[in-house]
Design a protein around this nucleic acid. Structure first.
Lengths: 213, 213
DNA sequence: TTTTACATACGTACATGAATGTATGTAAAA
DNA sequence: TTTTACATACATTCATGTACGTATGTAAAA
């Protein structure tokens, strides 16, 4: 069954990305063949090679699917941080963890990036993109910490550069622990309790948490 | 050149594990063929199939290489924790990060487990082993936190179970950020500064840090 | 002490299958 | 009529597993 119109072709493309996402997560990237994806999507490999140059290209396009959502979250973060940086960052991190474990598309792609692909060879591009994304994210966090320091919300002796790296580590690590042992923690419900040690170590009491303490 | 004696055969086995370690890190697990490993080790695939059942078996044997060192560190941790749990845990975490980024064998294997393998299919066994190791590690951490609470070293409102998960996340995450962006941080030198936010959020001032504050 | 009977520790060769890329065919859309 | 959006078919390249060969070690029998 050949899709004819441009809209139908776009449908096919999205269907391929969707299918690849599921199969990559279930079987791993290198163990999922283009034939697997084509069959599961109800087309042949010809369709894949029409829309994408090769497997790596398909993989990268799949990763780009979540870029808009992530960017939107960061845009909101930077915008709202003016008022109360610590509290905004706190809410942002909680929402981030919540989103990752409740939006299936996000869960799968984050899961693939953490546990289902090897950052090497033809995936080098994805690796560089990931590192670059980490770098930008770190810069945003660092600026937020600097701004929080100006507001007097930061604990004494905290270095914004290092604190931003720690926060990245805390977030990535929690996601990974959850992916490896989902039975051990409910990331959606426990996000606050899992993040609070770090936050109470970095921000002054009362500056980041909603409740009075 | 055929190794004849038992000692020479053991040499071959170790050489294969060593070579696999390097190639898995450089090229990724699934993109490294047994022929690659054999050639780099100066033998043929016949030698590999003599010593190991298949690639997954070789992979697991390679992971087991670092098990003794890790176990020894944990044994020391539990032993020394009697005196001062918070301070012992602090030193242990710092040493852990230091070891991971300074002992090449450890760096490679941890790097492989984080960025160079897909936990799926025939690697399922490695995945389960990893999850099980995480579980045991979490139990040890949790008990340490409970003991610290008895000693009055824990901050009020900290739940040992959740705090142990957070710490696992913090450690794993820092290692991963370092692996992804080694140029951004010197894990060996900055371990203390990267871990201190978490520790000062969990333990009472003065209970974990060597210096008086 | 020599010989015998195996076991070790690989090397070699082949059979098989899986995955990729590409060239070509084709029907409908524009 | 040309281009689009695929399907089909083919060539080729690995990677794996296994069967088999073979030289050496080794322990016991003779």
């Amino acid at each position: 069954m050949v899709r004819r119109t441009r809209e139908e072709a776009e449908q096919t493309r999205l269907q391929l990305l969707e299918t690849a996402q599921v199969l990559f997560w279930e079987k791993g990237v290198s163990r999922t063949s283009l034939a697997d994806i084509a069959q599961a999507a109800g087309v042949t490999r010809g369709a894949i090679y029409w829309h994408f140059a090769n497997k790596a290209d398909l993989f990268n396009a799949m990763c780009d699917l979540v870029q808009p959502e992530i960017d939107e979250m960061h845009r909101r973060l930077c915008e709202e941080a003016r008022a109360a940086p610590a509290q905004t960052l706190w809410r942002h991190c909680c929402e981030m963890l919540y989103a990752i474990c409740t939006i299936p598309k996000l869960t799968r792609i984050v899961g693939i990036l953490h546990l289902r692909c090897e950052y090497v060879g033809e995936m080098e591009l994805a690796h560089l993109a990931n590192a670059e994304w980490l770098r930008e994210n770190h810069q945003r966090f660092q600026r937020l910490f600097e701004y929080a320091a100006d507001c007097g919300e930061l604990m004494p002796g905290i270095d914004p550069y290092m604190a931003a790296l720690s926060l990245q580590g805390q977030l990535r690590g929690l996601v990974e622990v959850w992916l490896l042992r989902p039975e051990a923690l409910d990331l959606a419900r426990d996000a606050e309790r899992l993040l609070s040690p770090y936050f109470s170590g970095v921000f002054r009491p009362g500056s980041w948490h909603g409740t009075t303490d």
